[in-house]
Design a protein around this nucleic acid. Structure first.
Length: 884
DNA sequence: AGCCTCACG
DNA sequence: ACGTACGTGAGGCTT
């Protein structure tokens, strides 16, 4: 059975280029698109096993489409040189794969593919078209399936005619009509102005084709009728432009695209030139020819597996050890399994297996690890320190952390693995952990030889990465942020986590029983109103009951069906008395499963404590995140949930929980960075900021601000911090967009400095490609230049929000470092336990209460000096609940 | 594994 | 016309 694969080369190269992180070989040539292209090819070959394969490319600048419409593809951004330089490499690569490539002057890749799919249809052969371009959907048929790249390149979505029908309600041929009506800005196809996908689909569902729509203009109404009437010709021409030409005079025959598999030697040579080491390993290719620098270095890596006899060798070399790598596997460092530690000097890497580390023989090594005068570089030393501390080893002297540095250099990069970093910096091969250990249920620790080599490569990679990252940190002004804030903080966090916080299981269990009976009651209420029993927790079943059975109006839909979120339920409240019971049921089951049962599972039996894990390298704004359990989202807003906090108590008899939180830190930060006089003034006089905002927005005096005005003003302030949009505010306040727009206009008229800040920060982001916080923390916003409205708007709001949220994060982190210092210097027994974004929680012995009540807010308020005062409120009690 | 919902700042 | 508030993590359900 023949199977053809037809690839749109230009489209896939483009996708690969934008989807992959920048990657260059040692000569400085960009290779990320080639890499992405290659992984996609390998996947296709493996999964589809094609008999024929072809990659089609666009040829030349002018195609037959320009003859009819000179502006075709006008306004399109020029291909960046980083991508164009990769096309020759892709073509070479295809040759090495033995895959045919066609291009024909005057035609685009889709025309070539269109012609071949016509041939496939005629011959009754199965074909798969791979592209990133929706236009291709017009080629789908019984025989021809279209694979569109989803995110990245290796993930595709398959479109058969049925799938297209389901998604758009159109036949493949009607895709052309869709484009004819709505146009395509990326190809500069005009379509009919004012007609987007929604309107276009509606018209096609009603009439069928562009021609049919034009024939029925009279049945259209108002503005739409006018538009269509005025742009009839545009629609016809757009349809023509979007039509793939399927009669390209190909010189080659089908026999030329037969695929017979690749020649290992040729492919190996191509990969070697491109320096795709991981791919060579993956394919088990011979590394023929003279290996280049990186590979040979990796091959020559001197790895010593340390046993009892060799401990002396390592001890003698400790002074030359630059970097260490502690392998603790498992997501939760409090429960991680220690596999071993690699110690890298310039020429030799010693790997000490876990058993030996915990034995008494390794005492000199342990002393070295715990000696803060012995500086060491590492990767994720926070996790390492935590894993080791559970084994009685207090890791000390961390002078650099490659993981933390990678986060600061690009906090949105999700793959800050050592493997990813070494590839990005082109310094040789660390395999992905998944490759070495497998994933999920298949996880398995390999033989010690393989394991030790893996750890050794990591330690070696750290050693090489440090100077590169140091330079980058310096260059981007984050040197101080790294050494004086984030690095010290990582140690402090590990200490807080190891310390843990006591949670009384009795209190939780009793609360759980009360909640349980309330759940039963509200469940029965729901059943009674529904007239049937069903799973209220299933959005699907709940949707059927509410909208099909009870016939309530559908407010909002999700991808998979009816939306039943709290927002929707609130709006349904007037229609049926079942709604409050559902909301209550939801609230109670959330409490029960997440906060009673979930928290109980995390309590350590021996100590009665929970130990969260703060992640310092996740949030794009610089905030911390908390896991296993998340202690940053313990209920507080509703009284029923707030009671959970009663279970959080001090770990010593007679001690107290003390909590201090910043008052309006984000708006104070905004006042500082925007320099808005009115806002600054409000904080200097310590006014109630939401009341002040209400006065300005509604133009009334203080005594005329009622609670509703204050509530609305509060929402406006939130909106400002989030990067305001009239839509978002209207959603939040349940008002019209127009009203929301007026609020915003009023706000900006009153706070002109804030308006200027918002405008300027977006311009600055566009100029620099990134925004920064007060301490120079950086976040890149590549999508600020996107032509897609959504992506661009999102980036703009992020540009407004990140400096605010990020600076607030900087400030509380500073306070934590200073607080830790103070506790030490003053020899206090009090311990810092938790951070909740704008709040710090301590446990405090009675005799230190007075000191701490003053010290904590003092330190928080003086963490940094702004143009407005910082304010922190402090409270204490016998548990967390009482600190209000 | 992905989606929905909801807890927090 | 587009379709959104910013930043997270966890649990239950469905595929």
């Amino acid at each position: 059975m023949d199977k053809w694969i037809l690839i749109d080369g230009n489209s896939i190269a483009n996708r690969a280029f934008y989807a992959m992180p920048p990657l260059t070989n040692s000569a400085g040539l960009h290779t990320n698109a080639v890499y992405g292209f290659t992984t996609m090819l390998l996947k296709l070959l493996e999964e589809e096993k094609p008999t024929h394969m072809l990659v089609a490319f666009d040829a030349g600048k002018v195609t037959f489409r320009h003859e009819g419409y000179g502006d075709y593809k006008g306004g399109r951004q020029k291909t960046p040189p980083e991508l164009s330089e990769q096309f020759p490499l892709i073509k070479e690569l295809l040759q090495a794969f033995g895959i045919a490539q066609f291009e024909l002057s005057g035609f685009e890749a889709d025309d070539i593919i269109g012609t071949l799919t016509r041939m496939a249809d005629e011959a009754g052969v199965e074909a798969l078209v791979v592209s990133g371009d929706k236009d291709m959907l017009q080629l789908a048929s019984d025989k021809v399936t279209i694979a569109l790249t989803r995110k990245g390149v290796s993930e595709v979505e398959l479109y058969t005619p049925e799938a297209i029908g389901e998604k758009y309600g159109l036949s493949p041929a009607q895709i052309i009509d869709l484009k004819g009506l709505m146009g395509d800005s990326s190809d500069n196809i005009p379509g009919i102005p004012g007609v987007g996908e929604k309107t276009a689909l509606k018209m096609l569902h009603e009439f069928g084709s562009v021609e049919d729509v034009l024939a029925n203009i009279d049945s259209l109404k108002g503005k739409m009728k006018e538009k269509v009437e005025q742009h009839q010709e545009d629609a016809i021409m757009s349809k023509k432009l979007a039509t793939i030409y399927r009669e390209v005079p190909l010189e080659q025959g089908i026999e030329e695209i037969v695929y017979e598999g690749y020649d290992k030697g040729q492919l190996s040579e191509a990969f070697r030139k491109l320096e795709f080491k991981s791919l060579m390993e993956r394919l088990d290719l011979p590394s023929g020819g003279p290996a280049q620098e990186g590979a040979s270095e990796a091959a020559e890596l001197q790895v010593v597996s340390v046993d009892k006899d060799k401990l002396g060798d390592l001890e003698a070399k400790l002074d030359q050890v630059k970097s260490i790598y502690v392998e603790a596997v498992g997501e939760n460092p409090h429960h991680a399994e220690l596999l071993g530690i690699a110690f890298a000097s310039e020429e030799t890497i010693y790997v000490v297996p876990a058993e030996l580390i915990s034995s008494s023989e390794a005492v000199r090594i342990l002393e070295w690890l715990q000696d803060d005068t012995k500086e060491k570089y590492g990767y994720d030393m926070h996790k390492a320190a935590l894993a080791l501390s559970w084994r009685g080893i207090e890791l000390s002297g961390t002078a650099f952390d490659v993981h933390l540095a990678a986060y600061l250099l690009d906090p949105t990069d999700t793959s800050q693995t050592l493997s990813g970093l070494t590839h990005r910096y082109g310094i040789g091969a660390v395999q992905a952990d998944e490759e070495v250990y497998g994933k999920g249920a298949k996880f398995k620790v390999p033989d010690s030889e393989i394991l030790h080599r893996h750890l050794a490569r990591k330690a070696d990679a750290i050693r090489k990465l440090v100077p590169l990252q140091q330079e980058e940190l310096e260059k981007s002004g984050m040197h101080k942020l790294f050494y004086e804030l984030e690095l010290p903080l990582s140690t402090i966090l590990a200490g807080m986590e190891k310390q843990g916080i006591t949670v009384q299981s009795d209190t939780l269990k009793q609360l759980g029983q009360e909640i349980e009976s309330k759940i039963t009651a509200s469940m029965n209420e729901v059943y009674k109103h529904a007239g049937m029993e069903f799973n209220i927790s299933s959005p699907k079943q709940l949707g059927e009951v509410l909208f099909d059975k009870l016939g309530l109006p559908v407010i909002k839909k999700t991808k998979t069906g009816y939306s039943t979120d709290a927002d929707v339920l609130d709006k349904l409240e007037p229609y049926h008395e079942i709604i409050p019971s559902i909301l209550h049921y939801r609230q109670l089951t959330k409490l029960q499963s997440t906060y009673v049962e979930g928290l109980l599972k995390e309590i350590r039996k021996e100590t009665g404590k929970v130990h969260t894990y703060y992640r310092q390298t996740i949030a794009a704004t610089g905030r911390l995140s908390s896991q296993f359990p998340n202690l940053q989202n313990i209920p507080i807003r509703l009284e029923e949930g707030r009671k959970i906090r009663k279970a959080f108590v001090p770990s010593n008899e007679g001690w107290y929980i003390l909590a201090a939180d910043y008052s309006q830190i984000e708006l104070r930060v905004l006042a500082h960075i925007s320099g808005d006089e009115g806002l600054k003034d409000a904080f200097i006089h310590d006014l109630d900021i939401h009341t002040k905002t209400a006065m300005d927005v509604f133009g009334v005096a203080a005594d005329q601000v009622d609670s509703n005005m204050r509530r609305q003003a509060k929402a406006v302030n939130f909106g400002i911090v989030y990067g305001i949009s009239d839509f978002g505010l209207s959603q939040n306040l349940n008002i019209t967009r127009k009203e929301a727009g007026q609020f915003i206009e009023q706000y900006f008229a009153a706070f002109q400095g804030v308006r200027k800040y918002m405008d300027d920060i977006v311009l600055q982001a566009r100029e620099d490609g990134y925004v920064t916080t007060l301490l120079e923390r950086r976040r890149y916003l590549p999508e600020i230049k996107a032509s897609n409205f959504n992506l661009r708007s999102f980036a703009e709001r992020t540009a407004m929000n990140t400096p605010i949220q990020g600076t607030a994060a900087d400030i509380i982190k500073l306070a934590m470092v200073k607080m830790d210092e103070q506790l030490r210097e003053r020899g206090l027994q009090s311990r810092m336990l938790l951070q909740v974004h704008d709040e710090l929680v301590f446990e405090v012995p009675e005799e230190e209460l007075e000191t701490m009540k003053k010290l904590v807010p003092d330190v928080m308020e003086s963490a940094i000096e702004l143009d407005v005062p910082l304010k922190a409120d402090v409270n204490y009690g016998v548990n967390w609940y009482e600190t209000k």
